[in-house]
Amino acid sequence: MKTIRFKVTEQDIESYAELSGDVNPIHLNPEYAKAHGFSGKVAHGMLTMAKVWGILANEFDNMQFPAVFRLHFQSPVYVGETVELTIEEEDCSITITGKVVKGKASL
């Protein structure tokens, strides 16, 4: 078992919005996000997925091109938060659990 952390920055969210064309205001407008029950700007789920893949690709050579890559988003990841991933390898699969360790909300 291994733990690795990553952070989601304001710049990450803006860059991902530009790259993907996903300009959903819950990612970009804090007032809008708060009006819909969030405590601030929410990271794109696909941005979180990119960061998780980045960690896997750097850590495991055989995870560059997984057969299936699946994430369940249990809670929002907010801008400025640090997520700690716990990575467990079993046979041909890797299970990752993430939780927020620094920031203003929990994952």
Binding site: L19, S20, G21, D22, N24, P25, I26, Y32, H36, H44, G45, M46, M49, A67, V68, F69, R70, L71, H72, F73
Partner: peptide
Amino acid sequence: IAYRHIEKPWQLAEPVILRKQECR
């Protein structure tokens, strides 16, 4: 990110939240 190139015959109103994603 190919979604940006595809026009869907339906629309979703905000807020839109991704709760599960699978890529194959």
